[in-house]
Write a protein that binds this DNA or RNA. Sequence first.
DNA 1: ATAAAGGTTTACGTTGCGTAAAGGTCAAGA
DNA 2: TCTTGACCTTTACGCAACGTAAACCTTTAT
Lengths: 251, 251
Amino acid sequence: MLYSIKQMAQMSGVSTRTLRYYDEIHLLEPAKINEAGYRFYSTVEVDRLQQILFYRELNFKLSDIQKILASENQSIQSILHTHYDALVEKRHHIDSLIKAVEHTIAYHKGEIEMSNEEKFAAFKKKRVEENESMFGEEIREKYGTETVDEANKSWMQMSEESYKEMQEVERELIERLKQFNQQTDQQVEDAKQIVMLHKEWLQYSWSTYSSEAHKGLAEMYIADERFTQYYDEKAGVGAARLLRDSILAYA
Amino acid sequence: MLYSIKQMAQMSGVSTRTLRYYDEIHLLEPAKINEAGYRFYSTVEVDRLQQILFYRELNFKLSDIQKILASENQSIQSILHTHYDALVEKRHHIDSLIKAVEHTIAYHKGEIEMSNEEKFAAFKKKRVEENESMFGEEIREKYGTETVDEANKSWMQMSEESYKEMQEVERELIERLKQFNQQTDQQVEDAKQIVMLHKEWLQYSWSTYSSEAHKGLAEMYIADERFTQYYDEKAGVGAARLLRDSILAYA
DNA sequence: ATAAAGGTTTACGTTGCGTAAAGGTCAAGA
DNA sequence: TCTTGACCTTTACGCAACGTAAACCTTTAT
């Protein structure tokens, strides 16, 4: 039983273009090609296509699918694991992003004046009001609005939690920095721990941490007087520069 | 305070190429450009870039981000919250992907690989039946992941049936092996039954069984410490070696 | 016989940059 | 002051995984 390219396409749900492309990259070649150049596929190719589609739905790259299908049994393990690791890392990344958004939301509520409870109460209220009125129809449709209300309750709790965590980390950072700034005999270990704390704090709002970016931010701490002022005020004069130097040295 | 393109890049973690590209498509234009053509950014652009990156992480297309930022007269809160919801949804999606890969890995673990026919039989069947209905619909095509998840899920359930049977057999195998391992007076008959159970279990995934292959697998059980660990953990220290010896003797 | 339906290759468009290539600009040290 | 060397510029090709014509040939059905 031979299938034409269109029959194949309809059976599997892909386009004929896709099938020709898979032929072109030697991922899935027709069983036969007639005199006129028409492609014909047998059940063997149907099976193979199912496998391809299966892995494709798992977001494997076609080149990886090539390898998977080519390797009888050996490197398939490592490929799967590599992919698995990538996925897990991706999830971590998203987790940190979620924290970042939570943090940003909290931050934009004005961190100084209101208490946390007031802050979140107000936010909650406002959010319910504003829920519907923001994007254009087009974008809303595209990215889906059905699940918008689902995560609400758990999110309220989570965001308040992580916000408090973050504040706690910063409090400790300031404390340490203050002490460190007053010490006549400054130890390397203390500096390192301060940098670690700062990194930890940073990661509440930074999705992707890199030493480079960390140092870049450190430079900004003295380049931008708003930051200098902030740290000097909280942890004593010179604290901002001390923090910067520590980061540059140990981040 | 103006930042050079490199400072911007380091602060935000993107490449200078990206910044030039964003300038090119008018997504993020520098605050100033000097006589030499150098780009300089202010804190306004830093903020905007952060927003851009937020949406980018959510797989928004840059053209859509354009629109979003343009219509951002509304409240930041709403946008942030939409970020959050989308992130949560994305995490769900990745979770399902992780499970799917885990599942696939499970089949491959210990060479208990299902044949492709078994593996995709259900998947293929459903495909052929449902033909158009799965991928043909455009609604869920672009960003909707529900369909994909469902497809995976249905496949998973089908395979899970036989998978559960397998697990049941394995459970019994482990149980027997555990008891056998604790006995001071080990009977040949017990060993034989364990080997039979193991064979039965194997045949869920091996279409063609051979004593040779069985013994080969047994050797691997102590050659690969993951398997050694697996059986020793489940059935007591020494269980892996016991299983191997039994297989070598009676398979 | 004619038209509709389906097939072919060729090739450019898409998205979001990476990566040279070929070359100006600027701050700093000898 | 002059020369590095780091940093900046534009131009332009390359990538994945196809979509989408264009221009044309083959098969099938009436």
